[in-house]
């Protein structure tokens, strides 16, 4: 049994009072410890699929199961990392990272032990007292990742987390997330519209069709890590992704 199974998942949106089929029959299995990149034309519903997995929305048809249990609502085993980070501007870096532990009633000592570990891992140790607006976009995403990791989730759901970053910062974070993966073995669902990011991150890459979307193709990349964005072995994979997207007429 795969860790996450999506069977016949469909989702409608109302657009100008007309129901519009955004997701059409998504079948996908995610195995424990995989990184799966989800790529597709913009507006294809890949982020919607991520939100369904997170439990922020519910499918109109079909079912998503996690460890065999149907997903109903959000849970600390599946944590979403938003494109803009969605960090709390009224809290400093440490309090942002500890937020989930605080609401769970974890005692202060344990909280700081756990947050220190991940602040260290994300190279944030010198910024614990900073407020969010004082950080660069790259640092913000590091805080968002640390805030997710302290919850010890089994699956990280990353929604175009690096789309607002400059290339060197993005490349560094692509490396760091792979490091985290190698250290912790988290399962990662990584939504992107960028073929380079998809190929660097994904053990497999699921290419979405345009609306109403289904999964057009799954590309196996394999397990060699860490990979970098200038890895020449990834070029054929990136070309394959692009040709799949082109066939969609994008």
């Amino acid at each position: 049994m795969a860790m996450l199974e999506s069977r016949g998942v469909a989702k409608y949106f109302t657009h100008k009072n007309q129901p519009m089929r955004a997701l059409d029959n998504i079948d996908l299995d995610i195995r424990d410890g995989e990184i799966v990149s989800l790529i597709g034309p913009s507006g294809c519903g890949k982020s919607t699929f991520l939100r369904l997995v997170a439990g922020l929305e519910t499918p109109d048809e079909g079912q998503i199961t996690f460890d065999g249990e149907p997903v109903s609502g959000t849970g600390p085993e599946r944590i979403m990392i938003f494109q803009e980070g969605a960090l709390f501007p009224w809290l400093n870096v440490r309090d942002n990272v500890e937020f989930g532990l605080r609401v769970a009633g974890v005692p202060a000592e344990e909280r700081s032990k756990s947050s220190n570990k991940y602040l260290e891992m994300m190279h944030l140790a010198d910024f614990t007292d900073s407020y969010i607006h004082q950080l660069s976009t790259g640092m913000k995403q590091r805080v968002a990742i640390a805030r997710a990791l302290v919850m010890e989730p089994r699956m990280l759901l990353m929604d175009e987390p690096f789309s607002a970053l400059d290339i060197p910062t993005r490349d560094r974070l692509l490396g760091e997330v792979q490091d985290i993966w190698m250290k912790t073995g988290k399962t990662i669902l990584f939504v992107t519209h960028n073929a380079v990011e998809a190929s660097v991150m994904g053990t497999r890459i699921a290419v979405f069709s345009k609306r109403p979307s289904h999964i057009r193709k799954i590309i196996d990349v394999g397990n060699g890590r860490p990979r970098t964005s200038d890895d020449p072995d990834l070029v054929p994979i990136q070309n394959k992704i692009r040709s799949e997207l082109c066939r969609e007429g994008v």
Binding site: P76, F82, F99, V103, A104, M151
Partner: peptide, 8 residues
């Protein structure tokens, strides 16, 4: 949503 996801 982020807060709900981490348990609030």
């Amino acid at each position: 949503e982020a807060a709900r996801n981490i348990g609030a």
